[in-house]
Design a protein around this nucleic acid. Structure first.
Lengths: 400, 400
DNA sequence: GACCTAAGTTCACGATTTGTAGGAAGTCCG
DNA sequence: CGGACTTCCTACAAATCGTGAACTTAGGTC
């Protein structure tokens, strides 16, 4: 009731930049009196602060309001295959401190990841010198399926994790509230709030890297399905009976447009000769750069765009989104060079009607946005709850 | 505010069968006092009525409440390629009258469809002898993309309609409120409320007939996308570079599992010899029945199940639904015979995690449920508005 | 310095929800 | 047959919350 309206106002102030009370009234269709009331409360609590004023032809100037960037802090962590990255942000999402821990082993034990995340949490808080009580929460992004927000059971093929209760494990080591989510979803969230997805309510953020995934955004919030494993776009069949995918099935999109799949296809077309380059990324760039000189490379890249276009078209036809945002490291490399061709390929496979309504863009935030997206999880909760639920400044991270 | 609570209570009563005030309090998490208040209002207005009582061990018996079936009536219309079907229901969704008008021409003019729908509306109301003012509204299902609920611009390839403002055209001929929606969506709605989808909140109702489509249900209500053309599952690419589809693209699912596509594939595999049988349906049944004797038929059907399984798997991976319901005339014919094989085929293409969480079922309502689903549109509005918005008994259908 | 415009605030009112207590409708047991 | 008991439903007062109208504040203009 009242909380709901607080939430609406706070969200409006946060999402639509500095606003005056007057504009707030219009945006939220609440009466000026209510706005004044609730804003007064939020000001008293310190969540919101005044930020200059704007002349308004002739009359009293409007006082602008914004969410106080230092009202609280949020932490975002990314648990990837090769590293754990922890970042501290203020509420304006400015990075204040970063801690990175490389992971050398191929299939790291969950305990190691937990240790690094907690260590990083301690480190970034210590570096900036804020009190733990000021940290509203920590979001943790992990490359796998995350079941339910309760214990956050994680299934991650690439990490070798099966039913790891990551949320519970982390919560046991700190008093700071923990939220765990899929990395694709958090990156999607970051792009929707601060990147190429701004303003859209129905969108898909497609991530093409070594693997392929997507975050589905419906009605402004990300869609998770029954048990939060929605968005596995990479393992939709696009060539029935086609190439074997690492998921075990045949003809998955990932086997054709994921970087690994592209390099394998190149090697196959190149008479068994792999693409030169130290790591996967170098090799992928090598293929892209040799398009002008190598017919094999040209064909492989052209096909990749075709497959990707068909994959996008499937999203367009099924979801009728207003925007599709392409990200992921190899997706961006492709998109930077071939966006027009990609759009054309989508048009070839999509229905005219929904195709005319979708715009296809590139991610604007870098790869590190995964952690930032994770950090938006506690922010989202702050907005949803319409302000802070006070928390005793407790334990940052228990020694393990 | 109050209306919202009325809506919650009314919806609960409608969806969860006869309920006592006591149970309502629990379900809606409203106080007993509020429930009593609002139920009193609803009883006074006649939307809700008492329906017997149930002993409650020892104490005062609970009085059951239900939505009064004769509080109002709703009409559902189906505009198909070969017929216009109009049905009148009471609020318990019992059919009270039916009117069917065959369409002989291949691409009927929109005006003809409008004429039949209005004529049917008149006919069913006249047959039962109720006052037009008692009709809460008419839902119209049409085989095509319906844009926006305002004017309801219809794009229907199969009917040859391009940007037909069907909603506005119908509204001009009657004072009864009109709602237009896609036929796949309305059938999906019917199955979700009264058929195989009962109880599920995230589901997909897949329709396989001559063409192929799907209704996506997310969080209990059907998902429409930016401009209500979501759910075009039939035109997702499943065989990259494969068979030409009537939509113009290549390798669409519809070209493989739609009845038309199946028959074409049979003819191709049969050395150009088409399947015997007068119309499409007879021919399709013919193919199914000859599986035991004809190797060609066996292969075609087996492949069809495979393609359909992959198409289902795509839905499973992307949406993580809790249920998939297969309907449509040819889909049902296939499903009745090969549901276990289909489930197995889905398992081959889907990820283990989401596959384990989905159940695959057959539609329980017949093909005529399209009109019934359309009739749920006004019911849905009644529930959303928490009761009746009184309307002067006006014009049923103006002469044209 | 008076007047004008527009923004923000205060206050009383109406609408609603919610505890709480009491009434109603049965069963059970002597 | 009737009192005690259980359970469901409702009436009343108290508290909460949003809204409209009047009022105050802040700056510009002549």
């Amino acid at each position: 009731m009242r909380r709901s309206n607080r939430s609406v106002i706070l969200t409006s102030i946060y999402r639509d930049g500095p606003l005056s009370r007057y504009e707030l009234g219009h945006q939220t269709s609440l009466s000026a009196a209510s706005v004044s009331n609730l804003v007064g409360e939020l000001l008293d609590e310190g969540v919101v602060e005044e930020a200059g004023s704007v002349e308004s032809d002739g009359g009293r100037p409007r006082v602008l309001l914004r969410v106080a960037p230092t009202f609280g802090y949020v932490v975002g962590a990314e648990v990837g295959e090769t590293r754990v990255r922890v970042e501290l942000f203020d509420l304006a999402m400015k990075v204040l401190a970063t801690a990175v821990y490389p992971i050398e082993t191929a299939k790291p034990a969950p305990e190691l990841a937990v240790k690094y995340v907690l260590q990083g949490l301690n480190a970034v808080i210590g570096e900036v010198g804020i009190s733990p009580g000021q940290v509203l929460g920590m979001g943790v992004a992990v490359a796998g399926v995350v079941e339910g927000p309760a214990d956050a059971i994680v299934h991650a093929q690439t990490l070798g994790w099966d039913a790891v209760p990551l949320g519970a494990m982390l919560a046991a080591g700190t008093d700071i509230p923990i939220q765990v989510d899929n990395g694709a979803n958090t990156l999607g969230q970051a792009e929707m709030w601060f990147g190429a997805g701004r303003g859209a309510t129905d969108a898909v953020v497609a991530l093409v890297g070594s693997g392929v995934g997507a975050a589905l955004v419906t009605g402004g919030s990300s869609y998770r399905g029954t048990r939060s494993s929605a968005g596995e776009w990479g393992h939709t069949t696009i060539v029935y009976g086609g190439r074997k995918c690492r998921c075990g099935a045949e003809g998955c999109l990932e086997a054709y447009v994921g970087a690994e799949g592209v390099l394998e296809r190149f090697q196959l077309a190149n008479g068994g000769q792999p693409a030169p380059g130290g790591d996967e990324e170098a090799a992928f760039i090598g293929v892209l750069d040799s398009v002008g000189t190598s017919e094999v490379a040209a064909k492989v890249v052209e096909d990749t765009i075709g497959y990707l276009g068909a994959g996008f078209a499937n999203l367009v036809n099924l979801f009728n989104p207003e925007r599709i945002v392409l990200g992921g490291w190899s997706g961006l490399l492709l998109g930077e060079r071939y966006l027009p061709q990609l759009r054309e390929a989508v048009g070839k496979h999509a229905l005219r009607q929904p195709y005319a309504q979708v715009s296809i863009e590139l991610c604007e935030l870098g790869r590190d946005a995964v952690a930032m997206g994770a950090a938006t999880l506690p922010v989202l909760r702050l907005l949803r709850e319409g302000g802070a639920t006070p928390r005793e400044p407790g334990l940052v991270a228990r020694a393990r």
